[in-house]
Design a protein around this nucleic acid. Structure first.
Lengths: 216, 216
DNA sequence: GTCTATACATCGATAGAC
DNA sequence: GTCTATCGATGTATAGAC
């Protein structure tokens, strides 16, 4: 065991360049989005980041802690967008369009987010109920409250805001989470800036049409 | 080892009542929908079915084979619905409404299906490209072709059928795959017959609104 | 057709050298 | 802060008794 003459290859030592915590979170986000929580192992994530598994455990005490921190950072901005739109001073339709554009920009600019969010919903993960007072549920409730607000103002027909909210969220999330299925017929990825602009125009029109639906 | 006098508890033997293959597939479907492919172990599935792991391997040579057979049976009927609607002789709007109602009825009547299908898309599983000539892709293409047909007939404004198709599918799938998030504000599950009827009315109205969207 | 027992890989997580 | 080495549990899959 304690044989100082026999040196094994790849002996430990001082790291040339310690990896940044933010880089680890980014890599983890990609792995969780691609493989899911169960499918993404700590060994896989560490390998993608260029370090070994125990080094990853040095930065995050458990796999769950890594997941919560990685996904939480990706989801938080979405709640902010909804809250901003609901508190705006413009007319309802202007705020509705703006919210749609901001969400598409965000999901289109951060390719892991929609996939992560949908996985979280399917898995009934920690962000549905507890983690940070339920980020996912707050996003959902925020959209619902925003739509109720428009109904209260008499801007559009009163309908079932719950069905409307879930349909709108479905329109937003499925498209970006289903890549490359969504982009099967186009030349470049759905996350290409040009395609994000195209989707943005479509979503704004679609959401306007949905919200204009007579109550059912 | 070979001690005939010492009998262990729970020794093997003839099964009282052999489990049916269809029951195993049903149980596996539920487990894959709930836990995902990686999260659902053969041990877990066997346990839910009331047998042991090696007995499950006797019916299905690998975990992947079990998954493919279980999910394939759940997805196939959806493709049939789309194909039927596209070939109908009624007017376009009638066929559009009927397709929406049939799909909601199917997804609402088979609680695992939407969740399985969305997981398959997120995982880029075997049904996206190969398994049975790409069931998922054929469903997507079928809806797109149906919409193009309506445009060709001049029934509604020509728009981007790709965006339209993906938005409509998002409306259908997210709602049922996000249970119980979708049913957070209602008293009973989204799969309760009464709630399925409610969703059906909403979806028909939403899809009509989406399809009536001016081209973008 | 079901079982016990087991092979072998990988899982999350830890110990301790450097 | 990174590493090698290892732990115990669990993963897929198999052998062979009944």
């Amino acid at each position: 065991m304690t044989n100082p003459t026999k040196r094994r290859p790849g002996r430990p030592g001082r790291p040339k360049k310690p990896v940044l915590r933010a880089d680890l979170l980014s890599v983890a986000r990609g792995a969780f989005a691609e493989l899911g929580y169960s499918g993404a192992s700590m060994n896989e994530i560490a390998g993608r980041a260029g370090i070994r598994k125990p080094s990853l455990f040095h930065h995050f005490v458990t796999k769950e802690a890594l997941y919560i921190e990685a996904v939480g950072a990706a989801l938080a901005p979405l709640g902010g967008l909804v809250a901003e739109a609901a508190m705006g001073t413009d007319g309802f339709w202007e705020r509705l369009d703006l919210l749609g554009e901001l969400v598409v920009d965000y999901l289109g600019g951060h390719p892991d987010t929609a996939r992560l969010l949908v996985r979280e919903v399917l898995d009934r993960g920690p962000f549905l109920n507890d983690g940070g007072q339920g980020v996912v549920r707050s996003i959902l409730d925020g959209v619902g409250a925003f739509l109720e607000q428009g109904m209260d103002e008499g801007v559009f027909a009163r309908g079932d805001s719950r069905h409307l909210t879930l349909s709108i969220i479905g329109v937003h999330l499925f498209y970006f989470s289903a890549d490359p299925l969504s982009g099967a017929q186009i030349s470049h990825s759905v996350f290409h800036p040009e395609e994000v602009e195209s989707r943005k125009r479509a979503v704004v029109a679609h959401v306007r049409a949905l919200v204009g639906t007579p109550g059912v």
